[in-house]
Design a protein around this nucleic acid. Structure first.
Lengths: 220, 220
DNA sequence: GTAATAGTGTCTATGAGACACTATGCG
DNA sequence: CGCATAGTGTCTCATAGACACTATTAC
């Protein structure tokens, strides 16, 4: 067993519990908002899905496990935000939490919400208040993280199902960023360089001229 | 004592040890490089200064303590980078590390290096290899984090002592970012909007026309 | 036809970046 | 004086953003 400079082993020191909590973000149809998934906890308060890290487990795996067990959802690409370390943040004891964000298309989230309407729901990120622990702060961090991504790239999180029209992409941008100031043609020209045209053009059956379909340009 | 849905208390679960490791970055005089502080560990290998989180302690405080004890340095403004969570990253046991970065002006670092030349030194970020654990990766993350800051702002970390001339600021930028492509006058015009002129102009005793002195513009 | 959306041509304002020139110190 | 650095005037080019117009569908 390894001993440190004070002659103590690792396990001689008090260790914290380590949790992961995840803000699962999505854009519901016709909502024009960026929403976050919340679950009802045992004591009735609302919170983000989370769990304690198990021995030998990776953080990303703990996130996936918490989403599977608590929500019945498969996460897309959970990303770390930061560690919340206030020693008093959890009244049950010394618990640190690694906050994560994961963006999931509505189509993957809808079945989950239908299955457990009483203890799993979603609320606009900008309106959530009173979540358990410091989860309000995690939601704000998560929303800003995702918004920064959408300011830089067409659809970094894959919210829009390919292939998509520029209108569909723009509506998602408006929902994520909250009313885009740019007009439709400016938006088009800003996005085009990072999109690939799909030869079979149409999105038929809609009002107006059929729109060209695009995919995200893979490399750069 | 609080019991969870499985009827277990917090302390019934295995907990990891939680460490903090900090990449202290600086720009040595006349070096034109962004350097990182490394310390020699008990087994002779080089590593970043770090420590285990003590009970009830904040991460930022643990960082400050590690810098004080291991280096004899007072940190400036340690920032979290991310958690390194490979279960096998530390052969001594299950240890997660919250990587931090802190930028310290050379003037504050020099006395420390003189005092312990054998077990504390500094190396260019882009040349470090073979540090203990995953510390090479932390250094890369830290350098990129600081560089992003200097691409956006004149001197976010306060590396240059106020008041300073535009030349002094530009030399620091070149060191941090590694040879700036922009010419001196383009650099001037990019920086001026976020600087405040100091009425007493000079930087005398130097070659050439005396330069105007500036400070960072406080708010925005 | 009209309504509604898709897409393009073009103008303008802004800013980055470079060059050339002037200004002012030291030795 | 010459050299080195500080600072400015101005030109060019690329880009964002808006407007006006054309194109193509549903009804």
């Amino acid at each position: 067993m390894h001993l440190d400079s004070a002659g103590k082993a690792l396990t001689d020191y008090e260790r914290p519990s380590l949790a992961v909590d995840t803000a699962v973000l999505t854009v519901p149809p016709d909502s024009s908002t960026l929403d976050v998934l919340v679950v009802r906890s045992d004591d009735g308060t609302w919170r983000l899905p989370g769990t304690f890290l198990h021995e030998g487990e990776r953080l990303a795996d703990a996130v996936q496990r918490s989403l599977r067990v608590k929500v019945g959802l498969r996460g897309r690409d959970p990303e770390q935000l930061r560690v919340f370390d206030d020693p008093a943040r959890d009244s049950r004891g010394w618990v640190l939490s690694v906050a994560h964000v994961d963006v999931v298309p509505w189509a993957e989230l809808a079945p989950v919400l239908e299955r457990r309407p009483d203890d799993v729901t979603h609320r606009p990120c900008d309106e959530v208040r009173g979540l358990a622990f410091d989860h309000d702060a995690i939601v704000m961090l998560a929303a800003e993280h995702v918004r920064a991504g959408y300011r830089a790239d067409p659809d970094p999180a894959g919210l829009v199902t390919e292939p998509f029209t520029l209108r569909e992409l723009r509506l998602v941008h408006e929902a994520v960023l909250g009313r885009l100031p740019r007009s439709a043609d400016t938006f088009r020209r800003a996005m085009l360089p990072s999109l690939d045209e799909v030869s079979g053009e149409v999105r038929e059956g809609t009002v107006g001229k059929p729109a060209q379909l695009y995919r995200r340009r893979p490399a750069r």
